[in-house]
Design a protein around this nucleic acid. Structure first.
Length: 641
RNA sequence: GCUGGCGUAGCUCAAUGGCAGAGCAGCGGUUUUGUAAACCGCAGGUUGGAGGUUCAAUUCCUCUCGCCAGCUCCA
């Protein structure tokens, strides 16, 4: 090898000559390199530390802090798991094993599901492989040879992957000990780089995600550089469990879903109903302020209505079966839009009337397959905070801008402050002219830009009838939920032959915009429960304050205080039971009531209450008007924030 | 819908091919209490449902309903 030098450039701008043929690791500092450098970006492309440098390049160390670093780390982790599986169960075939958001999985073709017992053994073996600190080497070979090698090793799925999914003439493989896997890489330099490693669960998964294909056995796991980081992650998983709306919904007596009633059908208990009432009241108020007209529509209608709308053609699989009434077929409604359209159609409309905005908290029923139902998040009967805007093409942009403002206002009010916005463009199967699509899409973009909203484009992900904007919220645990959607629709105005009379006296076709802010009230409520861990802010709390008497001497006073609060418009209760104060506080804490007002003889004498906020906050003694002021401030603040 | 797991008192969970149990909640009593669980007692069940094997099934088998995890789907 020639002893000529090449230039490398480091992220801080320093340049350094190194010998051509050096590895990236050597170029970065050789043996002094710490174990927290996992890989390297050569000219922006993630590579192994062992990658050989042959020309001038910019180098950037990749650490666990970066998404690339996590990816490399977890990818090697999943190889380690796969090696453990192959060692313990040689007949298991490798398929795919990617790094995912917070860990990794690997799918194996195996003749039976892995048991929790298997998982323990696999984990133990994986830890041993980490201890062996096997060097991980990259190899390259021609496709045909890689296919042959895979078949030789009994890895038919791997051979299929190369043959059908990879175009490159040269295939890269990674080897650690006896374990070989086809993989693009990059990987960690050795198995010993993995600090903390844990397997989490196993489940079936179809080959290539298609239920007609054989079922594979998937194992999920995660890994972190340190035990503490792993523990933090496991703690977070515990926290997610603690906040599960199905658990809290039951504990706080908010809702139930019962066998006798049917899967995916929700009973709203009094406390849950109260929260819902508060949400809906706020929603209606804001819509009236925002220039919407509120409407109601029936829960069933003639099937023909949905033939006209196209739902029968496109979405019958997700609709409940029709019912026969007096020789006519009726359908439980899966959507509200046809009704709003029919309200629009009940008059001749002038261009002066537009935009027309119909809003409805409309309850719809959709047949969801049993396997997808999930608490409040995925149900069969739910209420959409639906609205349909009928407008001229030139009104799309201002209307969408208004909707965006409105959406962010609503979501912020419910405590969400981080958003991800997606613009979905024309899919392969679509209706409407190219011109329509272009104009609508650019109107959506213009609206987003006018609002200074950062967004990503999802090419081809629009609905067949028009482009859309989806907004995802991030909850307090950093999880994303899609709630809001704004969809332009060219299809329904056409199908229902909607028209308005223009300035020119001629009939024109209006554009429809479907939009939902919260999406489904059920789902949004589920998200809210988890976001707040059941501890609703005062303005949404079903019970805002509870008066706790110390002995029955203060019963009358406690009732008076509670009554005063209720008269002033607060949701207050009194706990007069013959129980110790510690017990009453415990129950009130468990019920997550924002304010506990303890009244004993001292308070009785002074006409005060001793205020304890949720989670131990001691707010001291105060007269009744003062606690009312506190409640008022706490309530108003949230709504105006 | 598919694969796997699960289904026992209102809730959380034990147990066994041979009379189904605990804690909490509920009810009755005692206690009159100062910031996260006072004490005693009582009651509570066709072990999700149907069928089968067995002298005997909550336990084993089949079907069915539902739940959970994942896959798939999501206007």
């Amino acid at each position: 090898m020639g002893a000529y030098n090449i230039q490398i450039t480091l992220p801080d701008g320093t340049r350094r000559p190194v010998q051509a043929g050096s590895t990236a690791a050597e170029a970065l500092g050789g043996k002094s390199l710490k174990k927290d450098v996992l890989a390297v970006k050569v000219n922006g492309v993630a590579r192994d530390l062992s990658a050989v440098l042959t020309s001038d390049a910019s180098l950037e160390p990749v650490t666990f802090d970066s998404p690339d670093g996590k990816d490399v780390y977890r990818h090697t982790s999943t190889h380690i798991m796969a090696q453990a599986v192959k060692e313990l169960f040689p007949s298991a075939q490798l398929t795919i094993g990617p790094a995912i958001d917070e860990g990794f999985y690997y799918d194996f073709a195996f003749d039976r599901p892995f048991t929790p017992d298997d998982l323990e053994k696999i984990e133990a073996r994986a830890l041993e492989i980490i201890k062996r600190d096997l060097p991980i080497a990259r190899m390259e070979m021609p496709r045909a040879e890689a296919v042959r090698l895979s078949k030789e090793r009994g890895e038919d799925y791997k051979a299929e992957i190369i043959e059908t999914m990879i175009q490159d003439p040269v295939i890269s493989l990674y080897k650690q000990g006896e374990f070989i896997d086809i993989c693009q890489g990059p990987h960690l330099p050795s198995t010993g780089y993995v600090g903390a490693f844990k397997l989490l669960s196993s489940a079936g998964a179809y080959w290539r995600g298609d239920e007609r294909n054989p079922m594979l056995q998937r194992i999920y796991g995660t890994s972190f550089p340190t035990k503490d980081a792993l523990k933090a992650h496991l703690d977070k998983l515990e926290e997610i469990k603690r906040r599960d709306h199905r658990k809290l919904g039951k504990e706080l007596d908010l809702i139930s879903i019962q066998d006798e009633i049917g899967p995916g059908l929700v009973l709203w208990h009094p406390k849950g109903s109260l929260v819902r009432l508060l949400i809906e009241n706020f929603w209606r108020e804001q819509h009236l302020k925002g220039g919407y007209e509120l409407v109601y529509s029936p829960h069933v209608a003639r099937l023909d209505l949905w033939k006209t709308s196209g739902h029968v053609d496109y979405y019958r699989d997700n609709m409940f079966a029709t019912m026969k009434v007096e020789n006519n077929e009726y359908q439980l409604k899966p959507m509200n839009c046809p009704f709003h359209i029919m309200i629009y159609k009940s008059h001749l409309r002038s261009y002066r009337d537009l935009p027309i905005r119909y809003g409805e908290l409309g309850t719809v029923y959709r047949y969801e397959r049993t396997g997808v139902l999930h608490g409040l998040l995925r149900v069969r009967g739910f209420t959409q905070d639906d609205a349909h805007l009928f407008c001229r093409p030139d009104q799309i942009e201002p209307e969408v801008s208004r909707v965006l403002d409105f959406t962010f206002f609503m979501l912020r009010t419910f405590g969400f402050s981080e958003f991800e916005v997606y613009l979905s463009t024309k899919p392969e199967k679509s209706v409407g002219s190219a011109e329509n699509w272009t104009q609508a899409t650019s109107s959506l973009e213009a609206a987003l830009k006018s609002r200074g909203v950062a967004y990503q484009v999802d090419p081809g992900e629009g609905v067949f009838y028009g482009p859309k904007i989806d907004i995802k919220i991030k909850d307090v645990l950093g999880r994303s939920w899609q709630c809001s959607t704004v969809q332009v629709d060219f299809n329904n105005p056409e199908r229902f032959d909607l028209a308005y009379t223009g300035e020119d006296g001629k009939a024109h076709r209006p554009i429809m915009i479907h939009r939902a802010l919260m999406g489904s009230i059920e789902r949004f409520f589920g998200i809210l429960i988890e976001h707040y861990a059941g501890a609703f802010p005062t303005w949404l709390a079903p019970v805002q304050a509870i008066v706790l008497s110390i002995t029955d001497k203060q019963q009358a006073y406690a009732e008076t205080v509670a009554a005063q609060l209720r008269t002033a418009g607060f949701r207050a209760e009194a706990d007069l039971r013959n129980e110790k104060i510690g017990f009453k506080i415990r129950e009130a804490e468990k019920a997550k009531i924002p304010f506990m007002l303890v009244v004993g003889d001292r308070e009785l004498q002074g006409g005060t209450v001793s205020v304890r906020g949720r989670s131990k906050a001691d707010l001291g003694s105060m007269p009744v008007p003062a606690i009312m002021e506190l409640l008022r401030k706490d309530t108003v603040q949230a709504v105006l924030a």
